[in-house]
Computed example of a mutant assay.
Amino acid sequence: MKVSIIGTTGYGGVELLRILHQHPTFKIQSIHSTKDEIPIWKEYPHLHCLLDKKMEPIDPVQIANQSEIIFLATPSGISGQLANEFVNKNIKVIDLSGDLRLSAKDYQAWYKHEPVHENLQSQAAYGLPEWNKKTIKNSSLIANPGCYPTASLLSLAPVVKADLIDPTSIIIDAKSGVSGAGKSLSRNTSLAEANENFRVYKVNEHQHTPEIEQQLLQWNNDIQPITFTTHLLPITRGIMTTAYVQLKDEQNTSQLLELYKEIYHQHPFIRIRPENTFPSIKEVAGSNYCDIGLHVDDRTGRLTIIAVIDNLMKGAAGQAVQNANIMSGFDEAAGLDFVPMYP
C-alpha cells in the first residue's frame, strides 16, 4: 500500500520514515513539508543512502490521488485543517496531533487554537489500539493519542473499567524526555538548561489532561477530574507515568497483576512485569512497547502503577503505524517488531 507523510521534518515524522522504510507492506510514496524541496537526508543526514526522496509541497488533491494512507505529523492547529482536505476522498488519514482528539470546547480551552468543525471531529476514531481496535478497523480517520495519555490510559484502564478504585483519587506523576517538546528551540530544552536538571512544567495546565479524563469517563462515568503533573527529564526520549489510586476494597498486588495479565495477554505491545519488578524508560527505547508494573501498599490501600513508553514510538509514530495496520486489515505488529535499544 502506498503511504504519504505530511510533516517529515519533525521528530514524529522522521520516526515514521524509520518505521515505514522497513515495513513489509507499506511503501513510502511521497513525503511533504513546507520547507524547501530538498532530499530528506539533507535535513536528517542519518538517512543518507537509505532514503533519497525529496520533500514535496503539500498538495492535498495530488496526495489523495497517489496514496492510500496519509500520516499527518504536523503541529496542532495545522493538522485539523489538512485532515479536512482529505475527508470524502476515499483515503485513510492518521493525525498525530491533538486536533481531532477533543470536543471543540475543550480543544479551544486547552490548546488555544480554533477547533475543527464538530462533524470532522466526530468522524475521528480515538486510536488507542488495545481498547478501541474494532472502531479503528472500521474508520478512515484516526486521532492518534498523545504520548502522556497513551502511557496513562494503558496503565489505568484495567482498574478503571473494573470499577476497583475511588473515582476521585487519580493522581498521575508524568515525566518525559526533551524530544517530547519537538524540534523548536526553547530555553528549557537547551542542553545548558535540561542537562543534569529536572523540571516541572505546565502545572495543572497540560493539554493532555482533558484527553486522559475524556477516555477515563468513557470507561467509567463516575471518574472525577484528575491531578496530572508533568516533568522534563534530562534524556532524549522516553516517558514514565506513575499513577496513584485508592482501591475501593482490599486487594493485593498478585491479584491485580493477574487482572492486568488476563486483560493484556493478547496485546503484543503490552508487557506486564512480574511482582516486585518495575520498568524503566531505557527498557522500551526505540520500540513500540508499553511496560507496566504495579504494587499495592497494604498500609494505605493505594495502588501504584508505573508505565513506560518511548514517546516517539508508542507515544506517536509507532502507534500511528499500529493503527494503520489495523485499518488496513494487517497484523497490528507488522513492521513494528523492534527489540528495544539497550543500553
Results as ranks from 00 to 15, higher is better:
M1K: 07
M1P: 12
T8W: 01
L16E: 09
I28P: 02
Q29Y: 09
S30P: 04
I40E: 03
L51Y: 12
D52Q: 15
M55C: 15
Q62E: 14
A73N: 06
E85C: 15
F86I: 08
R101F: 00
S103Y: 01
D106P: 02
Y107A: 10
E118A: 11
G127C: 01
N132M: 02
K133N: 11
K133C: 11
T135E: 09
I136T: 08
K137F: 13
S140P: 00
S140E: 13
Y148V: 08
S155K: 03
V160Y: 00
V160A: 00
A162N: 13
P167A: 01
G177S: 09
A192F: 11
N195K: 14
V203G: 01
P210L: 04
L216P: 08
N220K: 05
F228H: 14
T229I: 15
H231Y: 13
L233W: 07
P234K: 09
I235H: 07
Y244L: 15
Q266V: 01
I270H: 00
K282I: 11
Y289G: 05
C290H: 06
G293V: 08
D297L: 08
D298E: 15
L312F: 08
A320D: 05
A324R: 03
M327A: 11
F330W: 08
F330A: 07
G335H: 08
G335S: 03
